[in-house]
Design a protein around this nucleic acid. Sequence first.
DNA 1: TGCAAATGTGTGGCATACTGCACTTTTGCA
DNA 2: TGCAAAAGTGCAGTATGCCACACATTTGCA
Lengths: 68, 68
Amino acid sequence: MDLDDVIRERRKLLGLTQEDLSDMTGVSLRTLKEIEMGRGNPTLRTLEKLALVLGLEIQLTVRKTAEQ
Amino acid sequence: MDLDDVIRERRKLLGLTQEDLSDMTGVSLRTLKEIEMGRGNPTLRTLEKLALVLGLEIQLTVRKTAEQ
DNA sequence: TGCAAATGTGTGGCATACTGCACTTTTGCA
DNA sequence: TGCAAAAGTGCAGTATGCCACACATTTGCA
């Protein structure tokens, strides 16, 4: 599951529109749309703003499954 | 543990210098240094390049611990 | 302890993430 | 089915991530 899917699903689970989430995080509506569409290339800080409000956390974990 | 610490520790565990990792990932030495210093604000694609070579994966998971 | 390897820093240019605005398209409910 | 809410798009300006180059500082080993 890609990060954009996680964000969109989590947002819907919380009953928020893109505009709601934009207001709550300070991430512009335009940028949020791009991220959820899988376009764009968000910075870590932008992802962190979204993660905080969505109750998510960003982790770098050791890859357990087969490479690539 | 912050992402920059994970990257640095993982790099050292694999016996790589910053220059090695820069060459292997295509992420410039300058950018890698900034990331490991905790300065800078890497894009998702830059983090993905590093994660791939370091055998790490980026995840957005539901925060289990107390908020904030 | 001296020295080479490794790491950190200043500067400047280019690419692009982020933003706001106006508009179009899609969605889903009365 | 009509319509308002929600989501997607084109465009243009600003901020900043990424990069190369040159140099300073720190590290750790012979």
